[in-house]
Design a protein around this nucleic acid. Sequence first.
DNA 1: GCATCCTATGCAAGCGCTTGCACAAAGCGA
DNA 2: TCGCTTTGTGCAAGCGCTTGCATAGGATGC
Lengths: 347, 347
Amino acid sequence: MRGKRTGQGRASRAAPETTGGRPTLEDVARRAGVSTATVSRVINTPKKVAEDTVSRVQEAIAQTGYVPNLLAGGLASNRSRFVAALVPSIASSIFNDTMEAMSRALSNEGYLVMLGLLDEGPGHTAILDAVIGRRPDGLILTSIEDDEATRGKLKRSGSPIIETWALPANPIDLVVGFSHRDVGKELARHVRALGYKRPLLLSAGMRRASERTEAFARAWVRLGGAEPARLIVESPMRYGPARTSLGAFLDGGGKADIVVCSSDWLADASVVEAKARGMAVPKDIAVFGFGDMHMSSEGALPLSTVRIDGAAIGHTAAAMLLDRAAGRTVKDPIVDIGFEIIDRQSS
Amino acid sequence: MRGKRTGQGRASRAAPETTGGRPTLEDVARRAGVSTATVSRVINTPKKVAEDTVSRVQEAIAQTGYVPNLLAGGLASNRSRFVAALVPSIASSIFNDTMEAMSRALSNEGYLVMLGLLDEGPGHTAILDAVIGRRPDGLILTSIEDDEATRGKLKRSGSPIIETWALPANPIDLVVGFSHRDVGKELARHVRALGYKRPLLLSAGMRRASERTEAFARAWVRLGGAEPARLIVESPMRYGPARTSLGAFLDGGGKADIVVCSSDWLADASVVEAKARGMAVPKDIAVFGFGDMHMSSEGALPLSTVRIDGAAIGHTAAAMLLDRAAGRTVKDPIVDIGFEIIDRQSS
DNA sequence: GCATCCTATGCAAGCGCTTGCACAAAGCGA
DNA sequence: TCGCTTTGTGCAAGCGCTTGCATAGGATGC
């Protein structure tokens, strides 16, 4: 691999291409009759180069089919032009809208998104190093990193860090999110105002879902309600477990006039289970979701839910990173994107 | 940035760290009393280094908090240790299972996945260059690249290319997919065998969906059926447009005893619309989907559909890339992952 | 007409690694 | 005991870019 370049200066060969056939800056420079510095400038800062030189170089680029090696460029310039996104999952995840929006916003500027799948909990050294070692120009977190070792590593990485989908108590760096606690609290108030008496909290076991659930319960009690019943489901996106769980509760004589779910999947599953038991929704039992997925508003029974603007989170995060990359200071480093409680037909 | 290193040799300073604080190989080497080459070997090929040297170096790594710069490493070694995935979308896409499976399989080996969002159609030069310029060790395509310019660029990129979710007529390189045509054909046969007479093809406008639809229609006619009616929906994942479209067809006096859809989303929307009109599924009208999403089997009405093992595609692709990266030859460069027609309660 | 200032370009020193090669030391068989 | 392998390490030449600095011509001012 390396050897091919041995004796590099070895007189000008007919085919100037070096390095295993892929043309380099030097090949382009030679062809255009300029220095590599000039070619680099044509690519990165064309206004600093005379017009006819630019066009001559561009022609050479076209002829050689040159594609800049961004690894080399990143190493030299200390800007990698990509951001890494650490997500717990990507298969039908609630963060996907955010990822997609961010990805699109960034790609306009030549930035790409690198994916790092990180389960909740500590001990991701390998993946973290793989990410940090690439010196991303930004790091988006969607899971909450409690682990001090992890947080330290991230901090020391030198990349701008954006925590999203939450408002951490003491942020590492930048934040775009909302308060899960507020969601829980507001939802309690809302459900109460709607006149329901016995909420059942059906929730995935994950950190943030729990935070909402807990806040709901506390607020509910404070509003004079009885401590609500709770159900934890392991697979937050499968219908089966949710239905089984709810079914068992009902079979066991559990009473509830509304099921407050930690996701629209869970909510939809609840509706299905309720109907399967001949219960009318919302008459016999109401259902509230979280997330406002596409299908929620347009399905058989439009779901009452809490809407989070995931795409806006993505846009905002992208803008922040771009600011940082350009050396601008981020005017508002902590953004609360808020949420919206939507009443539809399931409550 | 650069300047900091001027006068580099400037006697050994108390704080040996160079480069804006982030420790480098050299810092570790100095601390461990070895050469940078040795540190590099400890990291990449520890068996080639004496045991006590290894532990001494590892200690130095731990003390300095050194994280290897993979940009530099990639440049030097000509292996970037990441693969790029070109996908049309990531928000609730059918490819997400594949992405996730692949991502997980690869991350065990220190590989990361870089995302490139590529809409169907030609003209992605910018994104393509951003991807290729990073010299990925592999390139996963999920959209079909017809455009000759694009194909050429990909071929010349030097990275292994895997086309997935289809079996292209003349592959660029590696393939893990299945035949959309066969799906259409088999489905026609199957639906016919089930006794249906008037299929309505409800399909997204995308390339692959069309391929299945066309194959279905041809096969259907060949089996003696009448040319089936077709409906094209623009947003393949929204319920609204699908319902509207189907509704209009029915309102306009269109007749059909089964709706064959190009996705489970469309199928579910069809079920919802049919029920909303008081039609019984499958008695008055049956529905067939495609994709077998989680919810399809566990929802209110378990959907008949075509199952594709997206995760298997991801695994297989990852294995292929790892083989290529290790210099092994891929024993089977074209893998047909097949599909499975599943009868559930909507037909 | 000469000093002064731009503007366009080139030079060359890196960026932080990897790795072929050279070499010293240690192990080994006869 | 002596040549001959192995190991284990270091040297140093890159990988393909970016960019501070120097320089060479114009253009400009007086």
